[in-house]
Design a protein around this nucleic acid. Structure first.
Lengths: 235, 235
DNA sequence: CTCAACATTTTTGTATACAATTCATGTATG
DNA sequence: CATACATGAATTGTATACAAAAATGTTGAG
């Protein structure tokens, strides 16, 4: 029974989107096993399709394929997350500088709508949706860049931040629509330096929150986590 | 008859590498049809493997998958090539700034060896090899970056330059080992600004050569180009 | 001779069957 | 009682068979 209730046949892209969104929204947490047979049954397609989707997700870095062992949601370390934010800052600044002079009122309007949706999701405490919308703001901004390769890079980079998993991260709702709004203000006013400065502050803030979560987290390694399932044999 | 003469079974990675290198070296030119049955026979594997390889290559942007029509070597326009070089300049500079303070003598040595190979390939007029070595220099440098995401970006970006296809490009041997050598000199001396400046000149030069080739090229429209395609694998 | 409609062939897309590997369970042994 | 090993179940990897679509070739009318 396919979870997507639509009557249309769940094609490869639908399966891909569903898994992609689930990972980005942190519904599927890092190290979750993505068994082929299970997914095939769930979506009502053959393993062939599931396999292709998993390989595409692996190509985007969202899924880790362990030979002869299967597919898992990827997990990144704190250090890797920091590298991601560093690269993000670099490209975000470049894109803002690129987009600001040529942006149209319609494009601004479209982004403002997105911010409104973010605010709504935050009010409703719908944090999975908020996570996705927040990413989408930056992705949609990146899509406006003249340079589609930089845009594609950011589009692939941003979802990876969902793979940093510490206990506290789940409960860390980053309601940053205000900063998004301020970035738009700067862009709309043609004030590149202002927009760039806020964007940097914005990303610094997100990274700081992640660092805080990581420091609060009892540093449990993967092996530790596996071992603590059965501390003692009950028999 | 598999082209890889080794007796070991050509696995997926071998097929991937072979096709990847052939495209990067401009042995397989843009718009070349990559028929599944043909490749399967050529490498002595099933279509399943070929299919996986083609999807991986498509994920890297080297291959274009047209639904129900098959796989083709991707082609990029002059404008897209210019975007690639713009992104390359940005990231290359960042990486040089990142790598210079922490590079080791062994790493320098390894890169110098690569430059020597380049010089040799240029002397021998082995242009396919030179093309690959020239890319490899930048890729290997990028691999030294602390930021593996920027490194990966460049690693995926650089091969795309092989997809810009104008008549003159084939006959355009860019013997730029000297500039590579100078970049290394700057890095080795710890003179970041010098290294960055040369790197910029280097990339500007390559892009200028491409622009020249494009202007010399009789601007063939898409429809004309379709008429003149010779899709045979020359092997 | 040209063009269009139909039939044939080829190629891609998907599902399934089989082989290979890993993982879990249970048993024997020190 | 714990460890090592062997057997069996479950999962992944690969090849093949079949279905669907596109390309090609042929025929016939205008």
């Amino acid at each position: 029974m396919p979870s997507s209730s639509s009557s249309t046949k769940p094609s490869e892209d639908m399966v891909y989107t569903e898994l992609y969104d689930s990972i980005c929204e942190r519904q599927l947490l890092p190290d979750t096993k993505l068994g082929e047979a299970l997914l095939a049954e769930h979506f009502g397609v053959s393993r062939t399709i599931i396999r292709q989707v998993l390989q595409r997700l692996a190509g985007n870095g969202l899924v880790r394929l362990e030979p002869n062992r299967g597919a898992f949601v990827e997990r990144i370390t704190l250090e890797e997350a920091q590298q991601i934010y560093a690269a993000w800052r670099l490209v975000e600044e470049t894109i803002i500088r690129d987009v600001t002079p040529s942006i149209t009122p319609e494009q601004i309007q479209s982004l403002r709508q997105l911010v409104a949706q973010e605010r709504h999701a935050c009010d409703e405490k719908n944090y999975p949706l908020l996570t996705r919308l927040s990413s989408q703001f930056h992705i949609q901004l990146a899509a406006l860049s003249q340079n589609k390769y930089l845009g594609k890079f950011l589009t692939e980079l941003i979802p990876l931040t969902s793979l940093a998993y510490f206990y506290e991260v789940k409960n860390m709702p980053l309601c940053t629509e205000d900063e998004h709004s301020q970035i738009l203000d700067g862009i709309e006013a043609g004030d590149v330096e202002q927009a760039v400065a806020i964007a940097h502050r914005h990303l610094d803030g997100i990274e700081a929150a992640l660092n805080a979560a990581a420091s609060l987290d009892p540093h449990i390694s993967l092996t530790d986590r596996l071992n603590m399932r059965k501390p003692s044999l009950s028999r």
